[in-house]
Nucleic acid binder design. Sequence first.
RNA 1: GUCCCAGUAGCUCAGCAGGAUAGAGCAUACGCCUUCUAAGCGUACGGUCGGGGGUUCGAAUCCCUCCUGGGACGCCA
Length: 628
Amino acid sequence: MIQQLILAELEGHVEALLAAYAAERPAQLKILTEHPAHPEHGDYSSNIAMQLAKIVRRSPLQIAGELQSRIEEGGSVQGLFRKVAAVAPGFLNFYIDWNVWASGAYQTEDKQRMRREQTKVLVEHTSINPNKAAHVGHLRNSCIGDTLTRMLSHAGYQVEVHNYIDDLGNQLADTVVGILHTQSEGTFLRFGDFCWETYAKVNQAYKAQPELAEQRAVVLHAIESGTSNLAWMGALVAERIVREQLEEMKQFGINYDVLVWESSIVRAGFWDTTFELLSRTNMFHKVTEGKLAGCWVLKQAEDSADASTDSQDFQGDKVLVRSNGILTYTAKDIAYHLWKFGLLENDFVYKKWEDGLWSTAAEGRKKPIGHADMVINVIDYRQQYPQEMVKLALEVLGYEKQASQLKHVSYGVVSLSPGTAAGLGIDTSDGKGSYAMSGRQGIGIKVTDLLDRMEQVIDAKRSRKAGISSRAIAAAAIRYYLLKYQLQTEVVFDMEQATEVTGNSGVYLLYAYTRANSILDKAQKEPRLQAIQAHFAGNLLEEPEYQLLRHMAYWPETLDNATDQLAPSLICHYAFELASLFNHFYSACPVLKGNEDRIAHRLWITQLVRSRLHQALELLGMPTPKRL
RNA sequence: GUCCCAGUAGCUCAGCAGGAUAGAGCAUACGCCUUCUAAGCGUACGGUCGGGGGUUCGAAUCCCUCCUGGGACGCCA
C-alpha cells in the first residue's frame, strides 16, 4: 500500500532528523498522509514538517526541505514518485510516477492477512421480531451487517453470520393475541402484511379493552412453556414470518449462516451456567430491600453509581432476574454472548433450515459454530446501554479480552420525511422534520412495498430490458441508498429521494459499470480492435485519466479504513467518486477512437476501472451486470 | 436530574486522528446525442459550517459555554 510505503519512509527520516537536532520524539507525534484536495498539491501529502517545527525550532519549510532531500537521496521511495516537493507553509507533497504505478510495483503484500485468517468474527445482524413484515429500518440493519460481512471476509477474516430470532417475546405474543381477538377483512399477499396490520390492531385494541392485555400474558407464558395450542400458534407464526423475512432479504443479496432462536438459549440452559459464573463475582447479587427487592442485579461501576445517588428515579444497576424469577432480555443476551465467545460449557444443537443455513433446534447435531474471537453486533443506537451491560458482564467475569473484542456497530434509526409520512396518512400538521416509524401503530415503509415501488420506477425508465431484472436493479438501488449514509446519521427516508435513479445513487454506479463493460465488449468484438493489446502509456496521460488513476491508487487505504472503522459508507463514497470520474473520462476521452496506441492506453484504464468498480459493487452487495 | 448523538447550500447529506480555495446529490436555469449506453456530461445559481468565547502559524474539525432537535438511563425487548 502506497500510504504505508510513505509512512515507513517518513518514519525513518523523522527519527534521523530528530536525532540530528538532538530532540526528543513527543508521544503525540503522528506521522500521517492525506490525499490532497487539489492535484497541484500532489497525490499524497504530509504535514509532518509543520508538526516538527516547534520541536526542533526550525521553520516548517526548512524541515520540509530537509526531509525532501533525505527522501530524494534514498531514491524517492522505491522510485514510485517522480517528484517530492516541499512547499509553503511546510507541506511535503508526493507526486506518483504513473508508469511505475501502472506496472504494479506499488503493490505490497498484506502483512495483516495471516493474523486475520486465524481470527473468527461472528456478525449478528437483522434480528427482527418474528411477528410482522420487515420495514426499511430493519433493512438498513441487514444491509449494514451484510456489507460488513463482505468487507471482513474480503479482508481475510473467517466470518459467521447470525440472525437472532426472539421467539419468546412480547411482540410475538401480541400478534398471536391479535390473530385470536381482532378482525381483519382485507386481502393480503403475504402473511407478514396480515400480521403487520394485526399487530397494529391489537395494540389499538389494548387501549380500548385492557383485559386483552391479560391475554398477552397468558400467550407469553404459553409460548415460554411450549406445551399448548397457543405455544404452537406462536411457533407457527414465528417460523412463517422468519421464512418470509429471509426471502425478502435474499432479494437484496443478504444471507445468513445460522438462525439462533431465543427458545434454544433458554432450553440449552445457558442462563444457569451464566448465573453460576456471575454469582462468583461480587458485582452480581440479589437485592433485599427498596424498589428492586427480590431482583438479581448487575452492579454498575462504583463511580457512576455514586453520581446518581441523588435521584431516586434513575439508578445504575441493571436487573437481570426479575423478582418473579423471569429473566430480562439482557440476561439472555449476556448468556448468549458468553456462548458466542465459546465461554460456556453449554452448546446448541442444530438442524438444517435450508442449503447453507443452519438453525438452532430442540434436537439435532452439534456443529462447530460460535467460538468467536471477535463479535460484531449490528444494532441501532438506542440499544447502546444494554450492549454496554453485556460488555460490562464480560468484564466483571474477567473476560477483558473478549469484552474488548465485542463491538456494537451502532447506527441511526430510519424515520420518515414529512412528505412520505403524509403519504401514509399521518397527520403532519405539527411541522416536525421527521416522523418515527412504529410497528405498534402500523406506521412504516415495508420492505416489499418499497421494492415494488422502486421496481416500477426502474421499469418505467428502461428502454431495453435485457439481462438483469428491474427488481434486481431496484434492490441494488435501495441497498446503496441505505448504505451511503454514515452509520450514526439518522436517515430521514423520503420516497422521492430514495427512488432517485440519477446522481449519487445505486443506479448511477451500475450504469457506469455496464458502460465500462460495453466499451470492453465492443473492443473484443470488432475485428479492427481485437489485435490491440491494452497497456498504459504515460506520455498519453490526459487530465481526466490522471484523475481516475489517482483515485484508483487510493483504493487500498480506503478499503482498509472502511474495514477498520466498520464503515460501509466509505466504500459508497469511493465507488461514487470512481463512477463519476469514469463518466467524465467517458465523455472527454473516447476510448475506441484515434490511433492504436491511444486505444490501447484507454482500454487499459477502462479495464482497471471496471475491475475496481466490480470489487466495490460486490463489497456493497450489488449485482455486476454486463448490461442495463 | 445525569449521560450520549446531531445542528454545514432551499432539501438530503459528505468533510471533523486541526491544514493549502468548505464539497456532492436533489431542486432551479441554461447548453451537449448522425460519434464506445443521454439512467450520461458540462455551465450557472446557491454557505457569516447553530450563537458566543478560547487554544495556535492555522479551526467546520479541538476545548468551554449557551440555544435547538433526537436518543438512552424500564422488574420492555
